[in-house]
């Protein structure tokens, strides 16, 4: 660590490089493990927002769809702050647009959806031959 780095850290301007390494790895591994590149993820994000917007008004600035990974399980996490539910006629139209017969309840949706991706087994396969 150089004196400059040390001062930067003291002033809270820079994280230690080990911490940065961990954060960067977690992000890149979430993508590696799901086989989704940033471009595909961005496309998926846009499409998800589009669908959700038909039902509820969401804060696009705050909205976030990302991959998170823990213990070799990767999850797609959507955090979409809802401003308000759409009025009923709009909902019916939205339902018709996606081919649903009935309008869904206008209850506010849960704000966070975590969908585990099935790219890797959460549990290790049983050992071929225990000694």
């Amino acid at each position: 660590m150089t004196l400059f780095d040390f001062l930067q850290r003291l002033l809270g301007r820079q994280k230690p490089s080990g911490t940065m390494a961990k954060e960067r790895l977690q992000l890149v591994l979430a993508h590696d493990r799901s086989d989704l590149n940033p471009e595909l993820l961005e496309q998926m994000r846009r499409e998800i927002l589009e669908v959700v917007q038909r039902y509820v008004e969401i804060d696009l600035e705050e909205g976030d769809v990302s991959l998170e990974t823990e213990d070799r399980v990767t999850a797609l996490v959507a955090n979409l702050p809802i401003k308000r539910a759409r009025p009923l006629p709009a909902l019916v139209a939205a339902a018709a647009a996606v081919g649903m017969a009935q309008a869904p309840d206008a209850e506010p949706a849960p704000q966070e959806l975590a969908v585990p991706l099935a790219s890797e087994p959460a549990e290790e396969p049983s050992p071929a031959d225990p000694d």
């Binding site: 660590m1 230690p16 490089s17 080990g18 911490t19 390494a21 961990k22 790895l25 890797e120 087994p121 290790e124 396969p125 049983s126 050992p127 071929a128």
Partner: peptide
């Protein structure tokens, strides 16, 4: 994992304790 090889264990090599202690290396 997909091949069913198990157990899989980890060895961490070329550890530099000082750099780790000052968080300039992954812990």
């Amino acid at each position: 994992n997909t091949r069913g090889v198990a157990p899989v264990q980890l060895v961490l090599n070329r550890v530099r304790p000082k750099m780790m202690a000052s968080q300039e290396m992954l812990g």
